[in-house]
Every structure is written in C-alpha cells, then in structure tokens.
Amino acid sequence: MSALDSLLHRRSVSKVGASAPSHRDLFALVEAAGTVADHSSLRPWRLIELRGAARDRLGHALADAEGPGANREKLVAKMHRAPLLIALVVVHQPSAKVPYWEQEAVASGVAHALSLLLDEAGWGVMWRTGQQTRSEPVRQMHELRPNENLLGWLYVGDAPPGQRELRRKRVNPMDHLTEL
C-alpha cells in the first residue's frame, strides 16, 4: 500500500479486539516511525507500553488527577478498551537550534507514523488524550522525567472486520491550501 493509500484509508478505531502486537512485533514499526523529519536528529521522543495491570495503574492515576468524586472503576475500565496502550512521550532535548515546539512536533509525527504503520499491519488504533494527560498523578505513574511530557496514548488491538472499507469524510484541499 502506498503512503497516499494508507493516509486516505486510515480510521480511528474506538472498539478493538483482545489481541495486540507483542513487544517484539513493535520493533520494526517503531524503527520505521522513528524516521520522521527530526531537526538535528535529537530523537525527542519515547514510547511506553502499557499492558495488563499497568492499565489499571493508569486508570487509578487518572482518577487521582480528576480528584474527589471521580468514578475510579469507570476510569480503570476505560483503560481496558484495548489490550495495549502505547504512551507517547516528548523528551525535550537541550538545543540552541531546535525549540521545544519543534521537538513536540517530531514526537507527534512519530506517534502519527506509528498509528499509520499499526493500521497498515491490520491493527485497530486510536490516539486518545484527555484533560488529565499532563497531570501530576499521570506523570508519576509513567515515571516521566522533568524534561518529558505525555502526548496521549495509542489504544491498539484487533481491528474489527471491514474497518478498511469504511470511509472517512475527506477534507476539501481548496479550503486548506493557498498560494502566495
């Protein structure tokens, strides 16, 4: 499949099955995703796999971030929407040439590339965020360092049958592309 076909047919999949790629299965995909444009080759990103009980810990951290009255059981259950969550982390590198926003753009590019590669490999994928993504309890749960911020999570699992046949509403390029 071409890059054009991959982008035109990609869909976020909110309901996935119980299987997910193994740690080893992810190696080639992460290697390929890591080829995104990266000024000064800083590689300002990393990924964290969350499976099993790690998803419960994330649900509890989100509940802690939400504060009193949070529905802890509901938040833990939401983390089980997929068998694999991949935390997307921007790792700010000191640089006189590459500002923070550009490093965050690189990390976002890696995340999007990885989602396309997972989709192309037949997995269902959805990039999720939320109000507590950068909260202190969630930072601590992911063991983030001071120079790191969370961009969200890729939820990954079996793609439902027929997912590729569904169509997304396309943008009108004339609404987004101008000339000077």
Rank of each mutant, 00 (worst) to 15 (best):
S2T: 15
A3S: 11
A3I: 14
L4W: 11
L4D: 15
D5P: 06
H9S: 15
R11H: 13
R11Q: 11
S14I: 06
K15H: 13
K15F: 07
K15W: 03
V16S: 05
G17L: 08
A18R: 13
A18D: 14
S19C: 10
H23W: 03
H23Q: 14
R24A: 15
D25W: 13
L29C: 08
L29G: 09
V30L: 14
V30I: 15
V30S: 10
A33M: 07
G34E: 06
G34K: 09
T35Y: 08
V36I: 08
S40P: 04
S41K: 14
L42Y: 12
R43C: 09
P44A: 12
P44H: 05
L47T: 04
L47K: 14
I48K: 03
I48P: 02
G52K: 10
R55I: 08
D56L: 06
D56E: 14
L58D: 00
G59W: 00
H60N: 09
A61I: 00
A61H: 00
A61T: 00
L62M: 09
A63C: 02
A63P: 01
A65L: 00
E66W: 01
G67Y: 02
G67H: 04
P68C: 03
G69W: 01
A70L: 01
R72H: 04
R72D: 05
R72M: 02
E73T: 13
R81I: 07
A87F: 04
A87T: 07
L88W: 05
L88I: 11
V90F: 06
H92L: 11
H92D: 10
Q93R: 15
Q93H: 14
Q93T: 15
P94D: 13
S95C: 08
A96K: 15
A96P: 12
K97R: 15
K97S: 12
P99A: 07
Y100M: 09
A105M: 13
A105W: 09
A107T: 06
S108K: 03
G109E: 06
V110S: 06
V110Y: 06
A111M: 10
A111I: 13
A113H: 07
S115I: 03
L116I: 11
L118F: 04
D119Q: 05
E120W: 02
E120L: 07
E120M: 06
A121K: 09
G124E: 05
G124L: 05
V125G: 11
V125T: 12
W127H: 07
W127G: 07
R128V: 15
T129R: 08
Q132V: 01
Q132E: 02
Q132F: 00
T133G: 01
S135N: 01
S135K: 00
P137F: 00
P137T: 02
H142S: 00
E143T: 03
E143H: 05
L144Q: 03
L144F: 02
R145E: 12
P146F: 02
E148R: 01
L150K: 03
L150G: 01
L150S: 11
G152P: 03
G152L: 10
G152H: 03
L154C: 05
L154R: 04
L154T: 06
Y155W: 08
D158W: 01
P160N: 04
R164W: 06
R164G: 04
E165H: 13
E165Y: 06
L166G: 05
R167N: 07
R168H: 12
R168M: 11
R170Q: 12
V171G: 12
V171S: 14
N172C: 08
D175I: 02
H176P: 03
L177M: 15
L177Y: 06
T178H: 11
E179D: 11
